[in-house]
Design a protein around this nucleic acid. Structure first.
Lengths: 205, 205
DNA sequence: CAAATTCTCAATCAAATGATTGATTGGCCA
DNA sequence: TGGCCAATCAATCATTTGATTGAGAATTTG
């Protein structure tokens, strides 16, 4: 608990909303979207249910808020490294590094994200927030593969769109089942590299 | 409605349980596990809520029942084709055919499966049913890749476990987001093949 | 400082929801 | 035929749950 929280009895609207979103995410990790209750969120934040509703008018809006904070977290992560002037292989490895970092630093992020993807199928509001996230990530790989084929450093018969789908699919599924396969992320990333990148050192037959 | 349903007012316990599971699955597809209500299931089956509880004692047991019917469906699908005496590449393609078939014939299966995987993270009962399903599927690919490397028809630096993780991950993630990428399954499967199988026709550099 | 605004809470509502109870019905078999 | 059991239902319960109300405290503004 911060000094501010001890002394000040009020928190600004923006901060409250962030605290609410954080609490909601924690509960989603614990109990899933099914188990998300406004009362539990309020209790975790340390406020009254009515106060929660003052800041976030409905449960729908609350879930949308969670989706937005997810998007913001990913956006912040994505924009940290400069890709300019790097080779396709270098960018691919940067992308892998990013992924490793997210998996290690914010393992709970994907749990919430997965629940949101689930919900997005039948909730257009959530879909509108979550879908662009995946599309953006996948497009990064499409571009990497396109360039890698172009400059001859990647296997020349790659279908960039399909390869990107495989890569993001394999990674997000890996992440989703993280607890079971924790040890093998490096092997998966290495295998992905071998699958698409030409390596003059290793024999091909 | 069948003749039996019109004339007979009673149904045997086993059939009722199957009907209940089917109704539950339909509702999960429509509204997710969050939106699953015992009343809705009973209404869909055409029975009273109390009768539902007579056949399936609790909501927990109901969800476990759904998980079991999923497992049974997959088991039935998996045991249909004989893999004996086939090359690694042939078996890989059989596996791909199976997948194509499931995606086309039972698209809703994966929606329910995904919800169950989600739930399995915090529900040991469901985990015990669902996890072996994935493990079995993944092991098929591990074996395929192992044999393909062994007989020299696949890329010789494959890590079978990692490659299997990539394959099943890519496929199940593809399936999960099926609605968005419907058209490209063939491209994905072809790219997976190129990623792991040596092709003497296409140039490698 | 006083008025206006923002924020918070205790209390409460109405609807939803999983589950139970007690009675009834229909088929089976001795 | 009569007893027994599986199957069914109407009615009801006890909670849970999202949301609201009205009053009051803290904060900002003029």
């Amino acid at each position: 608990m911060t000094l501010e929280q001890i002394s000040a009895k009020r928190e600004s609207g923006g901060d409250r909303r962030l605290a609410i979103a954080a609490a909601a995410r924690a509960i989603i990790v614990e109990k899933g979207l099914e188990g998300l209750r406004t009362r539990d969120i309020a209790a975790r934040v340390g406020i009254n249910v009515a106060t929660l509703h003052y800041h976030v008018p409905s449960k729908e809006a609350l879930i949308a808020l969670v989706a937005e904070t997810l998007r913001d977290d990913f956006k912040a992560q994505a924009l940290r490294q400069d890709r300019q002037g790097k080779t396709a292989l270098q960018v691919l490895r940067l992308e892998f590094d990013d992924f490793r970092e997210i998996v290690n630093d914010m393992p709970e992020l994907n749990i919430v994200l997965t629940e949101m993807v689930e919900r997005a199928r039948r909730d257009p509001v959530i879909a509108q927030i979550i879908t662009p996230l995946y599309d953006f990530w996948r497009l990064q790989f499409v571009e990497i593969f396109r360039r890698g084929v172009e400059d001859g450093s990647f296997r020349n018969d790659i279908d960039p769109a399909a390869a990107a789908l495989i890569t993001t699919g394999a990674l997000s599924d890996y992440w989703r089942q993280w607890t079971s396969f924790r040890a093998s992320l490096d092997q998966v990333l290495a295998e992905l590299e071998r699958a698409f990148v030409l390596n003059p050192v290793s024999a091909q037959g």
